[in-house]
Design a binder for these strands. Structure first.
Lengths: 155, 155
DNA sequence: TGAAATGGTTGATACAATCAACCAATATTG
DNA sequence: CAATATTGGTTGATTGTATCAACCATTTCA
């Protein structure tokens, strides 16, 4: 009897690469040349409007400096805007601009389309099943986090 | 009723990040400081002994030059060795050295351990199920490859 | 008030990845 | 067979992403 344990990981790998490739491809057309990191940052601030750079640092695990630069780029493109926090002179609260919102919306749609396409051969029940299994897998996997890898996966 | 379609993708993302993080972490201890790219290259030549660099280029989709450099590094560390192809003066056939095999074996074990750990809360049946679902997902996803993304996911 | 912590910026630097140009060997074709 | 194209591989230049360290301004805490 086959083990499957490793197969599962391989499948995950393969699937993610497929998805990433297509997403990147879609971004180049649809996302005005946003890199994947920028896209994720935009996504983050769209899900957590008014957050600070520091929040993204904590959430993504990337370096402060890098986040600063990404945010700068997004602001230069006028996809993101910031205003000083009235209560704390160090913080800046970030949120998407109109333009940013529109782009984010477009990317979200693309993302959904891609996801739907990859799942098109599974029945509704099977999707539910798959989602459930993956979720349980993730939960138990996260549970056993080693001290050094305490950062949150980037959604 | 919830859609789940996007959830599934998110779960995939999260899982891959978890796995990658831990694998990287494990590599730093166990893999003598191999980067993920080098580790994958080693893995490839262990699965396809006697292949050429070009084979890896085709399989991984990365740039020729980069592959050359990775292979060079692996050879400097004496994990990989090459000999000229007797039938074609351009080719070099590559295979792991003893040292390379040992390392690869150690990494393989780690990998299996990680995978097993992530799946520990699923029953045997559920693993089978999950594997099957993922495989079908991958197959149908690969089917609809767009012209520009014709490269093979890196296993 | 002085010391430490926090949010953010900047400069130097490392590294992976890609592109373009190139060499040597082989295949193709007229 | 000679000229040409293709293939496997290498090298140099360049870009993009990430990290580290030092730093400034503001806030918090002792």
């Amino acid at each position: 009897m086959p083990d499957r344990t490793e197969d599962v990981i391989d499948q995950l790998h393969a699937l993610m690469h497929l998805f990433k490739d297509r997403m990147r491809q879609a971004l180049n057309v649809d996302g005005g040349g946003l890199g994947p990191t920028e896209a994720r940052a935009l996504r983050f601030f769209s899900h957590h409007p008014g957050s600070t750079q520091q929040d993204l640092v904590a959430h993504s695990g990337r370096d402060k400096a890098q986040i600063t630069r990404i945010v700068q780029q997004l602001m230069e493109r006028e996809l993101l805007a910031r205003e000083p926090d009235p209560n704390d002179g160090r913080r800046f609260n970030l949120q998407l601009t109109k333009k940013g919102l529109a782009l984010q919306e477009a990317m979200h749609t693309q993302r959904k389309k891609l996801a739907a396409d990859m799942l098109r051969d599974l029945s509704k029940d099977e999707r539910q099943q798959l989602g459930g299994l993956l979720e349980r897998m993730r939960e138990s996997a996260e549970g056993s986090s080693t001290a050094a890898s305490e950062r949150i996966a980037s959604r």
